[in-house]
Simulated assay, not measured.
Amino acid sequence: MPKSMKDFVADAKGRVTTVSPGAALSASKDSGDLILDVREAEELQNDGRIEGAVHIPRGLLEANADPETGKGNDQLLKHREADSKVHVLCASGARATLAADCLDQMGYNTTVIEGGLAKWKKEDLPVQS
Rank of each mutant, 00 (worst) to 15 (best):
V38I: 08
H87M: 02
V127C: 04
L44W: 07
R39C: 02
L125E: 13
D124W: 13
A27V: 02
A53S: 09
D101H: 15
P57A: 02
T69P: 08
A24F: 13
H55G: 06
M5K: 14
D83K: 12
N64I: 00
K71W: 01
L98K: 06
K121N: 06
V86Y: 03
N46D: 04
G72T: 05
G115T: 15
E81K: 00
Q75T: 04
L61V: 01
T69V: 10
A23R: 13
R39H: 05
A41M: 10
L44P: 04
A99V: 14
H87D: 07
D101A: 15
L34C: 03
Q105V: 12
G52V: 00
A10I: 01
C90R: 05
L89K: 06
N73C: 12
G93Q: 01
D30C: 11
R95E: 07
L36W: 09
D101Y: 14
D66Q: 11
T97K: 02
R49H: 14
V19M: 13
L61Q: 01
P21V: 12
K71R: 10
Q128V: 13
I113A: 14
H55A: 09
T111W: 09
I50M: 00
E62Y: 11
K78D: 06
A91L: 13
L125A: 13
V112C: 11
D66Y: 06
N109C: 13
A53E: 05
V88C: 11
S4D: 12
S84C: 09
D104L: 09
L89C: 14
K13N: 12
D37T: 03
S92L: 08
G107K: 12
G107D: 09
N64E: 05
R15H: 15
V127N: 09
V88S: 11
H87L: 05
K71N: 07
L36H: 06
V112E: 07
S92W: 04
E62P: 05
P57L: 05
N73G: 05
T110C: 13
E62K: 14
G116H: 08
T17A: 03
L60Y: 09
F8Y: 09
P57M: 00
H79S: 03
M5I: 08
R80Q: 07
G72F: 02
K71V: 00
A63V: 07
K122D: 13
V19D: 11
V127L: 08
D30Q: 13
A91Q: 10
S84N: 08
M1V: 13
E40F: 08
G107E: 07
D74Y: 00
F8D: 14
V54L: 15
A100I: 13
T97W: 04
E123H: 14
D101F: 11
V112D: 11
V88A: 10
V88F: 06
K29P: 04
S92V: 09
G32H: 15
G115M: 15
H87G: 04
M5L: 12
